[in-house]
């Protein structure tokens, strides 16, 4: 017998605090698998955000820094500038990255900081109890958009991947999803590509991952996966938003 699937070494044995069915766990595992496959566990420094994944440092078996809300890209900039040859990544949610930290992520990308951001978009604030996020889709109910997000008063969702893909400092920007096994495999491939480009010293890379929040969406875990496919993907189309020019040819 050979083992075809097991817990990656870059994850600790800690049980996560995530709600049942929350796909943060899948995304953590994908990052850990990529770290293992690239053999960089002892060379990697991660930055955890404020939000549901604030405790990510308990789950990754690597050196980590916990950043202030939204500031992970600034913290990662400091780390990468001190250790240009280490692998540095931030793990951030939509409130952290697309709201309070939108300035930090835009400028890190514009400067072409050579780290990778894993951006988990579940269209809601999870940790604080289900408030509207910058990525909440139109009509989506939340604790602070109880009648559904109304563009007249609450504006429109931000498409982070497309926005950052306009910046020259960003070399790889992709949006993936984890709502079925095939997409999980694609998500992992994108994360691996992002890390590989970082290791090659190419520039800033970001993978936006559509993720579920059964607790705050008010659906079961399996219904939530369907909601990603039916409701989120039409607003947030999957795919590579910015490839390297030389890779295209």
């Amino acid at each position: 017998m050979i083992t075809v699937f097991e817990r990656p070494a870059a994850l600790t044995s800690a049980k996560t605090h995530y709600c049942p069915g929350c796909t943060h766990g899948i995304i953590h595992r994908l990052v850990a698998e990529v770290i293992d496959e690239l053999g960089i566990r002892e060379e990697t420094i991660g930055v955890s955000p404020v939000g549901c994944s604030v405790l990510a440092y308990n789950y990754f078996n690597i050196d980590m820094q916990e950043a202030a809300h939204g500031r992970a890209p600034a913290v990662a900039t400091g780390i990468k500038r001190v250790f240009p040859r280490k692998v540095v990544f931030t793990y951030q949610g939509d409130g952290d990255l697309a709201s309070i930290g939108i300035g930090e992520i835009v400028h890190a990308a514009a400067r072409g900081e050579k780290f990778t951001t894993i951006f988990v978009n579940n269209a809601i604030y999870g940790m604080t109890g289900g408030q509207m996020a910058p990525t909440t889709i139109l009509g989506q109910e939340s604790m602070t958009s109880p009648d559904g997000r109304n563009p007249a008063t609450q504006g429109y969702p931000i498409r982070v991947a497309e926005m950052l893909a306009t910046l020259e400092g960003a070399v790889y920007i992709a949006r993936v999803s984890v709502h079925n096994p095939q997409e999980v495999a694609r998500a992992k491939k994108a994360i691996k590509t992002a890390f590989e480009l970082q290791i090659a010293g190419k520039g800033f890379s970001l993978v936006e991952v559509l993720s579920s929040c059964p607790t705050n969406w008010g659906y079961t875990p399996t219904e939530s996966l369907k909601w990603i496919a039916d409701k989120m993907i039409p607003v947030y189309p999957l795919g590579v938003k910015k490839p390297l020019e030389e890779e295209k040819s």
């Binding site: 820094q65 950043a67 600034a74 990662a76 900039t77 400091g78 001190v82 300035g103």
Partner: peptide, 26 residues
């Protein structure tokens, strides 16, 4: 050494956080 003009004071001090966390004199 490294000089970075940050996008804001908030970003700058958090870059200092990251670098200090790596043990650098910053």
């Amino acid at each position: 050494g490294v000089f970075v003009q940050a996008e804001s004071e908030i970003a700058a001090i958090n870059m200092v956080y990251g670098a200090a966390g790596c043990g650098a004199r910053v």
